[in-house]
Amino acid sequence: EKIKSDFFELLSNHHLDSQSRWSKVKDKVESDPRYKAVDSSSMREDLFKQYIEKIAKNLDSE
């Protein structure tokens, strides 16, 4: 859970929106230790998708 929250924090530093693509974001964040803390690339992508869904819901509710 800490790894997930750290990863979300990392993503939040990059001002993403619901149109952001993992392939582009990954290049910007892959040197960060919070990125490396997530064991697998599929898990990183899953967390990215969860984060994008979360910010999309937040935008819808505003």
Rank of each mutant, 00 (worst) to 15 (best):
K49Y: 10
S5H: 08
M43L: 11
F7L: 00
R21F: 04
S18I: 08
E62A: 14
I3V: 09
H15I: 11
K26I: 09
A37G: 03
I55M: 14
N13E: 12
R44A: 12
S31Q: 13
L59F: 15
I3L: 07
N58V: 10
V38G: 01
W22H: 01
L11I: 04
D6A: 08
S40N: 13
F7K: 01
E62R: 10
D60H: 12
E30A: 13
L59Y: 14
S18V: 14
S61R: 12
N58D: 15
S5D: 09
L59Q: 12
L11Y: 00
V25T: 06
A56F: 10
S61K: 11
Q50V: 08
M43Q: 14
L11S: 00
K4E: 06
D6W: 01
S23W: 11
D39F: 09
E53V: 09
K26G: 03
I52M: 14
K28V: 11
L10C: 06
N13M: 14
K4S: 06
S31K: 12
L59P: 13
Q19V: 06
S41R: 07
P33R: 05
K49P: 00
F8A: 03
E45N: 04
V29T: 04
H14T: 07
S61M: 10
L47Y: 14
D46H: 12
E45C: 05
L47H: 02
I52D: 04
Q50G: 04
S40I: 03
K54Q: 08
S42Q: 11
S12T: 07
F48L: 03
K24W: 09
R21V: 12
E53T: 11
A56S: 14
K57M: 13
R44E: 02
K4C: 09
S12K: 15
E30Y: 06
L10P: 00
I55P: 06
S41P: 13
S42M: 13
Q19C: 13
Y35R: 00
E62M: 09
N58W: 03
I55W: 06
L10F: 01
D32I: 00
K57E: 14
R34Q: 01
L11T: 01
K57W: 06
N58F: 06
I3D: 05
F7C: 01
Y35L: 01
D32G: 00
I52Q: 09
D32H: 00
S5Q: 14
S41W: 05
Q19Y: 13
F7I: 01
A37E: 03
S20D: 07
K28P: 01
E30V: 08
S18D: 14
D27H: 12
D60N: 12
K26E: 06
Q19A: 10
